[in-house]
Simulated assay, not measured.
Amino acid sequence: MKKHPLNRRIRLAGLALATGAALTAGAAQAQDKGTVHLAYVEWSSEVASTNVVRAVLEQAGYEVNMTSLSAAAMWQAMGSGDADAIVAAWLPTTHADYLDRVSDDVEDLGVNLDGTKLGLVVPAYSDVETIADLNDHADAFNGEIIGIDPGAGLMSLTEEVIDTYDLDLRLRSGSGATMTAALASAIDNEENIVVTGWTPHWKFARFDLKYLEDPQGVYGGAEQIHTIVRQGLADDMPEAHAILDAFEWTPEQMGEVMLMNQEEGSDPYENAKQWVEENQDIVASWLGES
């Protein structure tokens, strides 16, 4: 394993020993192994997965820094090497353009979650069944589609949907949080609303929803979420690389963490640590212990 000792850390360790201070085994191990920098987008699915990966890497003795970015900035950080890894790459469609731009600078470790979907989502009580039907009900939807952050690949696809279906609705950008807040408010009042949606997401457990049919196939079929690391990570931190390569879970497992994160006042990092502690059999396979 390639290590990166720093003179400053050695001096500090020596000072601690000289003064009788004791470093815990975990802290000493983390100092030896270094810091893994994780980037992510502020989607409920990626908040869940990135915090779980953080907790697992910390269990293995690494320090971990997490940075929340827009999708475009997240991929830019991967290309520049400012981030070591993401577990938030939606492929082959949503993030395809981003990956193309940095493909020479990153390594795709493959799928960490299978069974995703993108599309336009409405309450189950809505009379609308397909995207093509939206124009006939544009007034009922206030002439708008409620979206998320403007840099998201889902937003670019939705702009393409608007053009392909010649919709008389505009796409309103915001965030994942503002989208779900608008959805909850509309459902509480039994109003029509159409939002950009993806699976896995906790809103499908909380509300009775449906995807609108996409006969033109603009959103594509089911997608997968991939783990991407910077080139050179395998040489710099081979154990971290191996853990990231082994990380894989199901939509149901991710859903457990996402629902925990929706509890008022809950901390996604603390929830991730709790889930990791309660699912050591799964975590052991990521750590190469089983």
Rank of each mutant, 00 (worst) to 15 (best):
63 E>C: 01
103 S>K: 15
16 A>K: 13
134 L>I: 08
289 E>Q: 15
42 E>K: 10
243 I>Y: 08
264 E>M: 11
40 Y>I: 09
271 N>D: 12
111 V>H: 02
40 Y>Q: 11
52 V>R: 01
237 M>H: 13
74 M>H: 04
275 W>H: 07
235 D>G: 09
268 P>S: 11
239 E>S: 11
25 A>T: 08
281 D>F: 04
218 V>F: 05
259 L>K: 12
167 L>D: 06
47 V>F: 00
149 D>L: 11
74 M>L: 15
220 G>I: 10
200 P>Y: 02
116 T>M: 14
105 D>V: 00
259 L>E: 13
146 I>T: 11
198 W>V: 08
232 G>V: 11
127 D>K: 13
143 G>A: 10
91 L>K: 10
139 D>F: 00
276 V>S: 01
145 I>L: 07
27 A>F: 12
262 Q>R: 15
285 S>F: 00
7 N>M: 08
195 V>L: 06
102 V>Y: 12
260 M>T: 07
69 L>W: 00
226 H>S: 06
85 A>N: 02
145 I>P: 00
217 G>T: 04
51 N>R: 09
246 A>M: 04
66 M>I: 15
26 G>C: 01
236 D>E: 15
15 L>M: 11
178 T>Y: 07
49 S>P: 00
82 D>V: 10
87 V>R: 00
13 A>R: 09
39 A>F: 07
50 T>V: 09
113 L>G: 02
80 S>R: 12
268 P>I: 10
222 A>Q: 14
131 I>T: 05
81 G>T: 04
50 T>D: 05
196 T>K: 00
272 A>E: 06
36 V>G: 00
13 A>H: 03
92 P>G: 06
125 Y>S: 14
77 A>D: 14
39 A>Q: 07
132 A>I: 01
24 T>R: 05
185 S>G: 09
282 I>W: 03
209 L>M: 08
133 D>L: 08
57 L>G: 02
35 T>A: 06
257 V>Q: 03
53 V>K: 00
235 D>A: 15
124 A>R: 13
59 Q>Y: 09
266 S>K: 03
16 A>W: 03
222 A>T: 14
182 A>Y: 06
287 L>T: 07
258 M>H: 03
23 L>N: 04
279 N>C: 09
196 T>M: 10
122 V>I: 05
280 Q>L: 14
178 T>N: 12
181 A>Y: 04
58 E>D: 07
20 G>E: 11
106 V>S: 04
253 Q>I: 09
39 A>K: 02
5 P>Q: 02
253 Q>Y: 01
96 A>M: 11
17 L>S: 13
233 L>F: 08
255 G>Y: 02
290 S>T: 14
42 E>A: 13
70 S>V: 02
163 D>T: 13
283 V>R: 05
116 T>L: 14
89 A>S: 12
243 I>M: 12
68 S>E: 14
49 S>A: 14
45 S>T: 15
270 E>F: 00
